[in-house]
Write a protein that binds this DNA or RNA. Structure first.
Lengths: 196, 196
DNA sequence: TATTTGTCCTAACAGTTGTTTGCGAATGTA
DNA sequence: TACATTCGCAAACAACTGTTAGGACAAATA
């Protein structure tokens, strides 16, 4: 048994479908009966695979968080100027998202429905990640690469806003592929829209 | 009757508090009993002032939409280069948001819970607004002010992502005031982080 | 004074929520 | 063959959902 259709265990199938549902309707508005119906089973049967609705959300949020963290660590290892690091950080972030747009959307929009103490843990991971980007920006301001006229909190928040909304509008079947998207996004944020 | 504490009718008080609640917990997770408790009354009493939960959401979303529209129309009237128009559009958008950060957050995050046909209407207003910004960007590319290397959809979506997340992190009591925020945001998006 | 309007109440409704229990059937392993 | 595991079901649970009905009291209006 344990058919692992397409290399996915039944539990993984449940979590995947849940991610789609959470993305579409939002965590709170998505019921376990909705989810069961999408999988062609009864709601009670879900509990053969998962412990609770929130366990699904937790696994989606924390798995994504781990991916982001891994990506940033790679970037930090490599030497280079602040703009190069920032550029690589942006590209890495986009690539992680592009690997699972659905989970990314849930990660971004639904994490607030985590209960304590998970919510606290999640937010700590998040602020740590953001602060490491902020450090890169501060480094760039310090070396004179970046303007010092811009508020650093504003800069880093604007950066993450741009990145984190990508899963909401990006169509993976479109002309621009994830890598090119990362390149262009990095260019736009670092160099701006204007010709120089 | 009709005490209008602080110039707000009871209905307006209900809608305001609802906005706070919707922002904090999300529309779907916020119950009418939660809202009633915040106002110190029973859930049933809310219905003396409003027709339904969704009516509150509708009024929040469409009132904000009208403000954004009004602001953009002002900008379009005035002559100037594409970067000037874009800059003014950004500053206007930020100012509208800053006037009501709570309603702005709801407008942005909770509009999807509108039922048809309101959702459709809302999305039409939104795409129209976005397209008018896109036109400004295209104009800038055409006149050679902006790079033509950047995908226009990407550019406009990145712009809106940055703008729309502002209510999530901006602290109105902070050092940077809404106008300076608009200036800096416009500068960052048009000219980038890098020194020129 | 009489009447309307605004505001809130208790009680209740029908439906939905996440989840548990106990069971059965099929599949894989010994 | 015997056994364990996986996967699913029906039925039920207590709690919660948005909302309605019908009434009470006070302030504003006539």
């Amino acid at each position: 048994m344990s058919e692992t259709i397409g290399n996915l265990s039944r539990k993984e199938q449940v979590i995947r479908k849940a991610a789609e549902l959470f993305k579409e309707k939002g965590y709170a508005a998505a019921s376990m009966r909705d989810l069961a119906q999408l999988l062609g089973i009864e709601a009670a049967s879900l509990y053969s695979h998962i412990k609770s609705k929130e366990e699904i959300l937790r696994s989606l949020c924390f798995d994504m968080a781990a991916e982001f963290r891994k990506s940033l660590e790679e970037v930090e290892k490599q030497p280079g100027s602040a703009s190069e690091k920032l550029r690589n950080g942006i590209i890495g972030h986009i690539q992680v998202m592009a690997k699972d747009l659905t989970a990314s959307a849930v990660f971004m929009n639904e994490h607030r429905h985590l209960s304590e103490p998970y919510l606290r843990d999640f937010l700590l991971l998040r602020i740590n990640y953001i602060n490491r980007f902020k450090t890169i920006i501060e480094e760039g301001v310090h070396t004179g690469e970046f303007k010092n006229s811009i508020d650093k909190k504003l800069a880093v928040m604007t950066l993450f806003s741009s990145l984190n909304w990508m899963p909401m509008w990006y169509d993976p079947g479109s002309a621009i592929d994830p890598q090119a998207l990362g390149f262009q996004l990095a260019d736009m944020l670092v160099n701006g829209l204007k010709k120089q």
